[in-house]
């Protein structure tokens, strides 16, 4: 290969990655630098940002402790609730359902994604609102039950919105599972329950981990569900950020919270990856 051919090859490579690099730089790296700079600044006299170098914003994070607590409590609980509902469905789809019906049933899990989450969440506002379930409850003697704008409503919205995202990875890992293992376990006289805990569950753990990590991370930045089903009372970090940037216009403090949120996401991700590795590691040991 001549030198010019090598140069040419390198130029082609650069041309191939150039647009994406530009995007990553201008719309990821640069904005991220901007919010880090802002996080050390001060609120302007009528809101917005004015340059400064202060740790005041980070020192003040405690003022949004409730939002962090709400998010860090409800995100894992939401993910766990999703898992409890999703696992039996994924199990049914992968193991029990007949192959002909499986395709239809799996598609039906995905279809809700094609209507706006906003509109579907709005439908829950109606179902939980005074003219929905509480109205039906009046017929059996429970007057003025309030469901909307409670943490329970937010949790329900979370399970509803993220269920498909939890079902799919678990389904995929269960579907790959070698059915002969289940048969072997049964042949060896194992009780179905011990087969489940001894064989099925451990083998589906990677899917479970993917689902939990995916749902938890998305929930950490959630805004719409707490806003619509929590009535601005069940406040997530996402709600605090919208408030700080679009209403109370304290951009530096908002930036500090955004930077902290990203740090939380990274920590959650690292923990999830470490657990995933450990699961993969023990399985290898088992096989040896």
């Amino acid at each position: 290969m001549t030198l010019t051919a090598q140069v040419k090859k390198r130029l082609v490579t650069i041309a191939l990655v150039a647009p994406a690099s530009l995007w990553l730089f201008v719309f990821l790296v640069l904005p991220f630098i901007a919010i880090i700079v802002f996080a050390f600044g001060e609120r302007g006299p009528v809101g917005g940002y004015q340059p400064a170098f202060t740790f005041e914003q980070f020192a003040n994070l405690g003022a949004r402790a409730a939002a962090f607590v709400n998010t860090l409590v409800l995100a894992p609980i939401g993910a766990a609730a999703c898992l409890l509902v999703a696992y039996p469905v994924a199990y049914y789809l992968a193991i029990k359902a007949s192959p002909q019906r499986r395709l239809l049933l799996v598609s039906l899990v995905v279809v809700p994604f094609w209507t706006s989450l906003l509109v579907r969440t709005y439908a829950w506002m109606y179902i939980l609102g005074a003219r929905g379930i509480p109205h039906l409850l009046e017929y059996i003697g429970f007057d003025n039950v309030r469901l909307l704008n409670t943490p329970g409503a937010v949790l329900l919205g979370i399970v509803y919105g993220y269920l498909p995202l939890m079902i799919m990875p678990i389904y995929v890992s269960l579907e790959k599972l070698d059915r002969r293992l289940l048969e072997a376990s049964a042949d060896l006289g194992a009780h179905p329950i011990s087969t489940f805990f001894g064989v099925t569950l451990p083998l589906s753990l990677p899917g479970v981990m993917t689902g939990i990590a995916l749902v938890t991370i998305l929930l950490l930045g959630e805004y719409l569900i707490p806003q619509l089903l929590g009535g601005g009372k069940v406040f997530f970090i996402g709600n605090a950020l919208v408030d700080l940037f679009l209403q109370s216009r304290n951009w530096p403090f908002g930036s500090a919270i955004a930077v902290t949120l990203v740090a939380v996401v990274v920590v959650v991700l690292l923990v999830a990856m470490r657990i995933a590795w450990r699961i993969a590691g023990t399985r290898q040991v088992d096989l040896v």
């Binding site: 006299p45 003022a63 409730a66 939002a67 406040f235 605090a240 408030d243 109370s248 304290n250």
Partner: peptide
């Protein structure tokens, strides 16, 4: 309306 103290109070109230 422009008082930062009131803006921050409201934000604290909402996130409490």
């Amino acid at each position: 309306l422009t008082d930062p103290g009131r803006a921050e109070l409201m934000a604290r109230f909402k996130s409490a």
